[in-house]
């Protein structure tokens, strides 16, 4: 009898703690999505070995004459082009590389919230790059130009 009560108490404590951990995990995901990643943080993540975040470049593929730079003029190494976060606008080679459930960094020209909101509807774990491509360039971090070339061996994240 005493053993049964003890067992029930342990299980109740474990269940309560498990529920609290799940709740804290959900809050963690929500907060993480709300906090933009700075160029410095992103550069550090890309330099590290191991799993890297997927980088989605939501700018236009080619410049159409306005002030904003396009993907083919300059982009973060390893970034996948997806103009306006619309799958249909992404190059065919890029479409195959896009994954919706992985940690994703959204790159716009200035890091605007409108683009992020559009992208968060598609990517469950999307974070904004604070200041966008302009901030990345100002910080003098590596850039590439030209059209999108998928990596030879899997992976969709950035590489430096």
């Amino acid at each position: 009898m005493r053993t049964t009560i003890e067992r029930i108490i342990y299980l109740l404590v474990i269940a309560t703690l498990g529920g609290m951990v799940i709740q804290a995990g959900n809050l963690h995901s929500a907060l993480e999505n709300a906090v933009p990643v700075t160029p410095k943080e992103l550069y550090a993540q890309l330099k590290k070995k191991g799993r890297k975040p997927q980088i989605i470049d939501a700018r236009a593929l080619k410049s159409v004459g306005d002030d904003d730079e396009a993907f083919e003029e300059s982009h973060i190494p390893g970034a996948i082009p997806m103009p306006g976060c619309a799958m249909i606008k992404a190059p065919v080679a890029a479409q195959a590389m896009i994954q919706v459930g992985v940690p994703t960094i959204i790159v716009s020209q200035q890091g605007d919230e409108k683009t992020l909101t559009a992208c968060q509807a598609k990517f469950s774990r999307a974070r904004n790059l604070a200041g966008g491509m302009a901030a990345w360039e100002d910080a003098d971090y590596p850039e590439e130009d030209g059209e999108y070339l998928p990596p030879k061996m899997g992976g969709g994240g950035g590489c430096l």
Binding site: I14, L17, G18, M20, V21, A24, G25, L27, H28, L31, E32, A34, V35, P36, T38, P39, K40, G111, A130, G131, A134, A135, W136, D138, A139
Partner: peptide, 27 residues
């Protein structure tokens, strides 16, 4: 479970602070 909870709470506090403070960018 207690350890996981403590780690997550610590990280959540840091994230909450970051989301309240203006983000410093290079520009």
């Amino acid at each position: 479970l207690v350890s996981a909870l403590l780690v997550l709470n610590g990280q959540n506090e840091e994230l909450a602070e970051s989301s309240n403070s203006p983000v410093t960018t290079a520009s």
